[in-house]
Amino acid sequence: MAARPAVFSTGVETVDHISHLIPRLRRYARALASARMPADDLVRSTLERAAHEVSLANAAGDLRVWLFGLMHEIYVRAAAPEQASALAEALAPRAEGEGLPQRAFEQAMATLPPQQREIFLLVTLEDMSYEQVAKTLNIPVGTVMSRLSRAREKLRLQLTSQARLRKVK
């Protein structure tokens, strides 16, 4: 298991530690790619809540798990009604300047249920242990494993079929 961060003594110090995690929150939020809640909105809401509840961060033990857990709750609330429109979202035109690979990944990601996206990205981008993912999302480790497996298989098939489509064009 990854080493747990030291217990933070003051709110100021905790805020400082949180601020160092912002780039990682942004990367994760960007990859979650939700049209209903743009990445930086998701990050801002998370940070606002973290600031409000900073006194609870000390007791949380693993600051990263606590912070990504807050983001999870906000994301789920925003993403819940989104599933039906996932495909439309994937096909919607995007802002210019966005890299082509990211576009393809967003399309593939949009086909996954929100929780599978979260599990795949926490494991892949954050390199969290399965126990940390379970704590972040408040689900059993067994659920993490089975959904991780489903997420990967779906993404693999998606990217394979996307590649095939491109060849046909």
Partner: peptide, 21 residues
């Protein structure tokens, strides 16, 4: 996936996000 999103880590953090905190 790591490669596609790696650059985000190097982007400067928008001041408004620091304000939120």
């Amino acid at each position: 996936w790591r490669e596609a999103y790696a650059a985000v880590l190097d982007e400067p953090v928008p001041p408004e996000l620091l304000d939120a905190l």
